[in-house]
Design a binder for these strands. Structure first.
Length: 269
DNA sequence: TACATATGATCAT
DNA sequence: TGATCCTATGTAA
Protein backbone atom coordinates (compact mmCIF):
# COMPACT_ATOMS: atom_id res chain seq x y z
CA UNK A 1 0.00 0.00 0.00
CA UNK A 2 2.46 2.42 -1.24
CA UNK A 3 2.43 6.11 -0.59
CA UNK A 4 5.66 7.68 0.65
CA UNK A 5 5.17 6.64 4.27
CA UNK A 6 5.13 2.96 3.23
CA UNK A 7 8.46 3.29 1.45
CA UNK A 8 10.20 5.16 4.25
CA UNK A 9 8.90 2.63 6.74
CA UNK A 10 10.09 -0.28 4.58
CA UNK A 11 13.51 1.38 4.31
CA UNK A 12 13.73 1.76 8.08
CA UNK A 13 12.66 -1.81 8.82
CA UNK A 14 14.91 -3.32 6.15
CA UNK A 15 17.85 -1.25 7.34
CA UNK A 16 17.36 -2.41 10.90
CA UNK A 17 16.98 -6.08 10.09
CA UNK A 18 19.30 -6.58 7.14
CA UNK A 19 21.90 -3.80 6.83
CA UNK A 20 25.39 -5.13 7.42
CA UNK A 21 24.44 -8.69 6.55
CA UNK A 22 25.55 -10.89 3.72
CA UNK A 23 22.41 -12.07 1.96
CA UNK A 24 21.37 -14.83 -0.35
CA UNK A 25 19.47 -13.21 -3.20
CA UNK A 26 17.37 -14.82 -5.90
CA UNK A 27 14.34 -14.20 -8.08
CA UNK A 28 11.79 -17.01 -7.80
CA UNK A 29 9.75 -15.32 -10.52
CA UNK A 30 12.75 -15.16 -12.80
CA UNK A 31 12.30 -11.60 -13.94
CA UNK A 32 15.22 -10.35 -11.85
CA UNK A 33 17.46 -13.38 -12.17
CA UNK A 34 20.46 -11.58 -13.64
CA UNK A 35 20.33 -8.85 -11.02
CA UNK A 36 19.84 -11.33 -8.22
CA UNK A 37 22.85 -13.35 -9.38
CA UNK A 38 24.90 -10.16 -9.29
CA UNK A 39 23.84 -9.38 -5.72
CA UNK A 40 23.84 -12.88 -4.29
CA UNK A 41 26.37 -13.31 -1.49
CA UNK A 42 27.07 -9.60 -1.12
CA UNK A 43 26.69 -7.50 1.98
CA UNK A 44 23.76 -5.07 2.10
CA UNK A 45 25.30 -1.82 3.26
CA UNK A 46 22.30 0.46 3.53
CA UNK A 47 18.78 1.34 2.51
CA UNK A 48 17.35 4.76 1.80
CA UNK A 49 14.10 6.20 0.61
CA UNK A 50 13.15 9.30 -1.32
CA UNK A 51 9.49 9.95 -2.04
CA UNK A 52 8.11 6.66 -3.34
CA UNK A 53 11.53 5.39 -4.41
CA UNK A 54 13.77 3.09 -2.44
CA UNK A 55 17.48 2.37 -2.90
CA UNK A 56 19.45 -0.61 -1.66
CA UNK A 57 23.22 -0.12 -1.31
CA UNK A 58 25.24 -3.28 -1.84
CA UNK A 59 28.92 -3.84 -1.29
CA UNK A 60 30.96 -3.21 -4.37
CA UNK A 61 29.11 0.03 -5.14
CA UNK A 62 25.98 -1.54 -6.52
CA UNK A 63 22.65 0.23 -6.11
CA UNK A 64 19.24 -1.29 -6.64
CA UNK A 65 16.29 0.96 -7.32
CA UNK A 66 12.81 -0.16 -6.29
CA UNK A 67 9.47 1.47 -7.04
CA UNK A 68 6.43 -0.40 -5.81
CA UNK A 69 3.92 1.21 -8.18
CA UNK A 70 0.33 0.45 -7.34
CA UNK A 71 0.71 -3.25 -6.57
CA UNK A 72 4.17 -3.78 -5.20
CA UNK A 73 4.76 -5.18 -1.73
CA UNK A 74 7.65 -5.93 0.57
CA UNK A 75 7.12 -8.74 3.00
CA UNK A 76 9.55 -9.37 5.82
CA UNK A 77 9.68 -12.63 7.73
CA UNK A 78 11.60 -12.68 10.96
CA UNK A 79 12.10 -16.42 11.01
CA UNK A 80 13.79 -17.73 7.88
CA UNK A 81 12.80 -21.30 8.66
CA UNK A 82 9.15 -20.36 8.80
CA UNK A 83 9.10 -18.10 5.75
CA UNK A 84 6.47 -19.36 3.30
CA UNK A 85 7.19 -20.76 -0.14
CA UNK A 86 7.44 -17.67 -2.34
CA UNK A 87 4.53 -17.01 -4.67
CA UNK A 88 5.11 -17.21 -8.42
CA UNK A 89 5.25 -13.44 -8.50
CA UNK A 90 8.13 -13.03 -6.07
CA UNK A 91 10.49 -10.82 -8.03
CA UNK A 92 13.31 -10.70 -5.51
CA UNK A 93 13.96 -12.69 -2.38
CA UNK A 94 16.54 -12.21 0.36
CA UNK A 95 17.53 -14.83 2.84
CA UNK A 96 19.70 -13.81 5.79
CA UNK A 97 20.50 -14.99 9.28
CA UNK A 98 17.84 -12.89 10.96
CA UNK A 99 15.07 -12.99 8.41
CA UNK A 100 13.83 -13.05 4.86
CA UNK A 101 12.41 -10.40 2.56
CA UNK A 102 10.14 -11.04 -0.42
CA UNK A 103 9.36 -8.38 -3.00
CA UNK A 104 6.43 -8.81 -5.38
CA UNK A 105 4.71 -6.69 -7.99
CA UNK A 106 7.10 -3.74 -8.21
CA UNK A 107 7.02 -1.37 -11.14
CA UNK A 108 10.80 -1.12 -10.87
CA UNK A 109 13.42 -3.48 -9.45
CA UNK A 110 16.69 -2.78 -11.20
CA UNK A 111 20.38 -2.19 -10.71
CA UNK A 112 21.10 1.44 -11.52
CA UNK A 113 24.26 3.40 -12.23
CA UNK A 114 25.14 6.52 -10.26
CA UNK A 115 24.10 8.60 -13.27
CA UNK A 116 20.74 6.92 -13.57
CA UNK A 117 20.12 7.44 -9.89
CA UNK A 118 21.05 11.08 -10.10
CA UNK A 119 18.73 11.64 -13.02
CA UNK A 120 15.96 10.03 -11.04
CA UNK A 121 16.60 12.07 -7.91
CA UNK A 122 16.64 15.26 -9.94
CA UNK A 123 13.08 14.62 -11.05
CA UNK A 124 11.85 14.23 -7.48
CA UNK A 125 10.58 17.18 -5.47
CA UNK A 126 10.71 17.92 -1.73
CA UNK A 127 9.88 14.92 0.43
CA UNK A 128 7.89 15.63 3.61
CA UNK A 129 9.60 12.61 5.17
CA UNK A 130 13.09 13.86 4.37
CA UNK A 131 12.81 17.59 4.89
CA UNK A 132 15.60 19.82 3.69
CA UNK A 133 16.22 23.52 3.92
CA UNK A 134 14.18 25.51 1.41
CA UNK A 135 11.62 22.78 0.75
CA UNK A 136 8.62 24.89 1.70
CA UNK A 137 9.71 27.68 -0.65
CA UNK A 138 10.13 25.20 -3.47
CA UNK A 139 6.69 23.74 -2.94
CA UNK A 140 5.03 27.15 -2.72
CA UNK A 141 6.77 28.28 -5.86
CA UNK A 142 5.63 25.15 -7.75
CA UNK A 143 2.04 25.61 -6.64
CA UNK A 144 2.01 29.28 -7.58
CA UNK A 145 2.82 28.54 -11.20
CA UNK A 146 0.42 25.68 -11.85
CA UNK A 147 -3.10 26.20 -13.16
CA UNK A 148 -4.16 22.55 -12.79
CA UNK A 149 -6.39 21.60 -9.85
CA UNK A 150 -4.55 21.50 -6.53
CA UNK A 151 -5.42 17.84 -5.96
CA UNK A 152 -3.86 16.93 -9.28
CA UNK A 153 -0.73 18.96 -8.63
CA UNK A 154 -0.27 17.33 -5.22
CA UNK A 155 0.12 13.98 -6.99
CA UNK A 156 2.95 15.32 -9.14
CA UNK A 157 6.08 13.81 -7.60
CA UNK A 158 8.17 16.72 -8.88
CA UNK A 159 6.11 19.09 -6.73
CA UNK A 160 5.93 17.04 -3.52
CA UNK A 161 7.36 13.53 -3.35
CA UNK A 162 5.49 10.77 -1.61
CA UNK A 163 1.91 12.04 -1.57
CA UNK A 164 -0.61 9.66 -3.14
CA UNK A 165 -4.33 9.47 -3.72
CA UNK A 166 -5.30 9.04 -0.07
CA UNK A 167 -3.15 11.77 1.44
CA UNK A 168 -3.96 14.32 -1.25
CA UNK A 169 -7.68 14.09 -0.58
CA UNK A 170 -7.18 14.22 3.17
CA UNK A 171 -4.76 17.16 3.06
CA UNK A 172 -7.17 19.19 0.93
CA UNK A 173 -9.92 18.46 3.44
CA UNK A 174 -7.81 19.47 6.43
CA UNK A 175 -6.63 22.63 4.70
CA UNK A 176 -10.23 23.48 3.76
CA UNK A 177 -9.49 23.61 0.05
CA UNK A 178 -11.76 22.33 -2.73
CA UNK A 179 -9.57 19.81 -4.60
CA UNK A 180 -10.61 21.35 -7.92
CA UNK A 181 -9.26 24.77 -7.09
CA UNK A 182 -6.38 25.79 -9.38
CA UNK A 183 -3.09 25.35 -7.52
CA UNK A 184 -2.00 28.90 -8.19
CA UNK A 185 -5.13 30.20 -6.49
CA UNK A 186 -4.20 28.49 -3.24
CA UNK A 187 -3.10 31.17 -0.77
CA UNK A 188 0.42 31.14 0.65
CA UNK A 189 -1.03 30.39 4.06
CA UNK A 190 -2.90 27.37 2.71
CA UNK A 191 0.13 26.17 0.75
CA UNK A 192 2.14 26.33 3.94
CA UNK A 193 -0.58 24.46 5.77
CA UNK A 194 -0.61 21.71 3.11
CA UNK A 195 3.13 21.24 3.52
CA UNK A 196 2.94 21.20 7.32
CA UNK A 197 0.10 18.69 7.22
CA UNK A 198 2.10 16.41 4.99
CA UNK A 199 5.17 16.57 7.25
CA UNK A 200 3.16 15.91 10.39
CA UNK A 201 0.73 13.27 9.14
CA UNK A 202 3.06 11.29 6.89
CA UNK A 203 5.41 10.96 9.86
CA UNK A 204 2.58 9.35 11.81
CA UNK A 205 1.88 7.08 8.85
CA UNK A 206 5.54 6.04 8.72
CA UNK A 207 5.56 5.27 12.45
CA UNK A 208 2.39 3.21 12.65
CA UNK A 209 2.33 1.74 9.15
CA UNK A 210 -1.01 3.06 8.03
CA UNK A 211 -2.61 6.27 6.89
CA UNK A 212 -4.42 8.11 9.65
CA UNK A 213 -5.47 11.73 9.26
CA UNK A 214 -8.39 11.95 11.68
CA UNK A 215 -7.61 13.73 14.93
CA UNK A 216 -7.99 10.94 17.51
CA UNK A 217 -9.65 13.34 19.97
CA UNK A 218 -12.47 13.95 17.49
CA UNK A 219 -13.58 10.34 17.72
CA UNK A 220 -12.75 9.75 21.36
CA UNK A 221 -9.47 7.91 20.86
CA UNK A 222 -6.14 8.56 22.55
CA UNK A 223 -3.73 8.10 19.67
CA UNK A 224 -3.83 7.56 15.89
CA UNK A 225 -2.87 3.92 16.32
CA UNK A 226 -6.06 3.29 18.28
CA UNK A 227 -8.38 4.28 15.42
CA UNK A 228 -10.22 1.43 13.79
CA UNK A 229 -10.57 0.80 10.12
CA UNK A 230 -13.26 3.08 8.74
CA UNK A 231 -12.49 5.75 11.31
CA UNK A 232 -9.09 6.87 10.16
CA UNK A 233 -9.89 9.19 7.26
CA UNK A 234 -12.13 12.20 6.69
CA UNK A 235 -13.06 11.92 3.04
CA UNK A 236 -11.18 9.22 1.09
CA UNK A 237 -13.68 6.66 -0.25
CA UNK A 238 -16.48 8.15 1.83
CA UNK A 239 -18.75 9.37 -0.99
CA UNK A 240 -22.31 9.82 0.22
CA UNK A 241 -21.38 9.42 3.87
CA UNK A 242 -21.73 12.36 6.24
CA UNK A 243 -18.74 14.63 6.80
CA UNK A 244 -17.26 13.88 10.22
CA UNK A 245 -17.29 17.59 11.04
CA UNK A 246 -20.48 18.98 9.50
CA UNK A 247 -22.59 15.99 8.38
CA UNK A 248 -22.79 17.19 4.77
CA UNK A 249 -22.57 14.21 2.39
CA UNK A 250 -19.09 13.71 0.96
CA UNK A 251 -18.77 14.18 -2.81
CA UNK A 252 -16.41 12.56 -5.26
CA UNK A 253 -15.28 13.07 -8.83
CA UNK A 254 -12.63 11.80 -11.18
CA UNK A 255 -9.87 14.31 -11.75
CA UNK A 256 -7.27 13.48 -14.39
CA UNK A 257 -8.20 9.79 -14.16
CA UNK A 258 -7.90 9.57 -10.37
CA UNK A 259 -10.89 9.74 -8.05
CA UNK A 260 -10.92 12.38 -5.36
CA UNK A 261 -13.32 13.00 -2.46
CA UNK A 262 -14.24 16.16 -0.57
CA UNK A 263 -16.76 17.86 1.68
CA UNK A 264 -18.55 20.62 -0.26
CA UNK A 265 -19.20 22.50 2.94
CA UNK A 266 -15.84 22.28 4.74
CA UNK A 267 -13.77 22.83 1.60
CA UNK A 268 -14.09 26.04 -0.36
CA UNK A 269 -13.39 26.76 -3.97
C1' DT B 1 -14.82 -18.53 -12.24
C1' DA B 2 -14.93 -13.90 -13.62
C1' DC B 3 -14.76 -9.35 -12.84
C1' DA B 4 -13.86 -5.02 -10.54
C1' DT B 5 -10.83 -2.57 -7.94
C1' DA B 6 -6.50 -0.60 -5.79
C1' DT B 7 -2.50 4.00 -1.82
C1' DG B 8 1.31 4.47 -9.34
C1' DA B 9 3.59 5.98 -13.34
C1' DT B 10 4.95 5.89 -18.19
C1' DC B 11 4.49 6.16 -22.97
C1' DA B 12 2.03 6.96 -27.36
C1' DT B 13 -1.31 9.77 -29.57
C1' DT C 1 -6.57 11.16 -22.86
C1' DG C 2 -6.10 6.33 -23.34
C1' DA C 3 -3.47 2.07 -23.28
C1' DT C 4 -0.36 -0.44 -20.78
C1' DC C 5 2.30 -2.73 -17.08
C1' DC C 6 2.58 -4.76 -12.17
C1' DT C 7 -0.37 -8.38 -8.34
C1' DA C 8 -3.68 -9.55 -4.86
C1' DT C 9 -8.13 -9.31 -2.94
C1' DG C 10 -12.95 -8.95 -2.42
C1' DT C 11 -17.43 -9.53 -4.45
C1' DA C 12 -20.63 -11.13 -7.98
C1' DA C 13 -22.21 -14.67 -10.90
Amino acid sequence: MPEGHTIHRAARLQRRRFAGEILEVDSPQGRFSDGAAELNGRRLEGVDALGKHLFHRWEGDLTVHIHLGLFGKFKVFTDVEKAPTPSDGTRMRWLGNTGAMYLSGPTACEIVSADQEEELRNRIGPDPLAVRKGDLDRVMSSLSRRSAPIAQVLLDQAVVAGIGNVYRAEFCFLAGIDPRRPAREVSETSAEELWELSVRLMKIGERIGRIVTVDPAEVGARKPGDLRKGNRLYVYKRAGQPCRRCETPILSAVLASRRVWWCPSCQSA
